[in-house]
Amino acid sequence: SEEEEEEWRRAKERGEEIIILGILWKPNDEEAERRIKEALRRV
Rank of each mutant, 00 (worst) to 15 (best):
I36E: 01
E17Y: 07
I36V: 13
E30Y: 12
S1T: 14
E3Y: 15
V43H: 14
E13Q: 11
R34A: 13
I23R: 00
I20C: 09
R14Y: 08
G15A: 05
A32W: 01
I20D: 00
G15R: 07
K26L: 08
W8F: 15
I19G: 02
R41W: 03
G22A: 03
K37L: 15
I18P: 00
E30G: 10
R9H: 13
I19K: 06
E2P: 13
S1A: 13
I20H: 02
K26I: 12
E30Q: 10
E5S: 03
E2C: 15
R9P: 07
D29F: 02
P27Q: 00
L24W: 02
A39E: 10
R35T: 08
I20P: 00
E17A: 11
I19R: 08
G15H: 05
W8P: 08
I20S: 01
K12C: 11
P27C: 07
S1M: 15
E5I: 06
E2I: 14
L40H: 07
E38Q: 06
R14F: 08
L21P: 00
I20N: 00
D29K: 00
E6D: 13
L40I: 12
I18V: 13
W8H: 06
E16S: 10
A11P: 01
E17L: 09
R10A: 11
W25N: 01
A39S: 04
I18W: 05
K12W: 12
E17S: 12
R41P: 04
V43G: 09
R9Y: 13
R9I: 13
E7H: 11
R14I: 11
K12M: 15
R10I: 09
L24G: 05
E6T: 02
E4G: 10
E33Q: 04
R10C: 14
L24I: 08
R34K: 12
I23P: 04
E16H: 08
E16T: 11
R42N: 12
A39G: 08
E17M: 11
R41C: 14
R9F: 12
D29I: 01
E38D: 13
R14N: 11
A39H: 07
A32Y: 03
L24N: 06
E5Q: 02
L24Y: 06
L24F: 05
V43A: 14
E31A: 09
I23N: 03
I18G: 00
E2S: 15
E3K: 15
A32F: 02
E17G: 05
G15L: 06
L40K: 05
R35K: 14
R35N: 10
D29N: 02
R10W: 06
A32T: 06
N28V: 01
E38K: 01
I19N: 07
R10P: 05
I20K: 01
E3G: 14
W25K: 00
I23K: 02
E2G: 14
E2L: 15
N28E: 11
R10E: 10
R41M: 09
W8L: 15
R35Q: 13
I36R: 01
A39P: 00
A32L: 05
R41N: 11
E13M: 09
E38P: 02
G15Q: 08
W8C: 13
E16K: 09
V43C: 12
E5D: 10
K12T: 09
R10M: 08
R42D: 09
R42G: 12
E7Y: 10
E16V: 13
A11R: 04
E31I: 08
E2N: 14
E31Y: 05
R34G: 10
I23M: 01
E13Y: 03
W25L: 03
E31R: 04
K37G: 03
E4A: 15
E6C: 14
E7W: 15
L21F: 06
R41G: 10
E31G: 07
E5H: 04
R10T: 10
L21C: 14
A11Y: 07
W8E: 05
L40S: 02
L40C: 05
E31M: 06
D29G: 00
E38V: 02
A32I: 04
R41E: 12
A11G: 03
I23V: 05
E17W: 10
R41V: 12
E31K: 05
E30V: 11
G22H: 00
E7T: 06
S1I: 15
N28H: 09
R34W: 05
I36W: 03
V43T: 10
R14G: 06
R42M: 12
G15T: 02
E38Y: 00
L21V: 04
W8N: 03
K12D: 04
E5A: 03
R14V: 09
A39Y: 01
A32M: 02
W25G: 04
V43W: 11
E17T: 12
W25V: 03
V43Y: 10
G22D: 06
N28Y: 09
P27G: 01
E4Y: 15
K37F: 06
E3M: 14
I20T: 00
K26G: 07
L40F: 04
A39M: 09
E7L: 12
A11D: 03
L40W: 02
E4D: 13
W25E: 03
I23H: 04
R34E: 12
E3A: 13
E33A: 08
K12Y: 12
I23A: 01
S1N: 11
V43R: 15
V43P: 08
E5K: 02
R34F: 07
K37Q: 08
I18C: 14
K37W: 05
E6G: 01
D29T: 01
I20A: 00
E7D: 14
K12P: 01
E16G: 06
G22T: 03
E17D: 10
L40N: 02
E30T: 09
N28G: 15
R41D: 11
E3W: 15
E3T: 13
L40G: 01
E38L: 00
R10K: 14
D29H: 01
G15S: 06
E13K: 06
E30S: 09
L21T: 04
G22P: 00
E13P: 00
V43L: 15
R41Y: 05
L40Q: 04
E17I: 10
L40M: 09
E13N: 06
R42P: 07
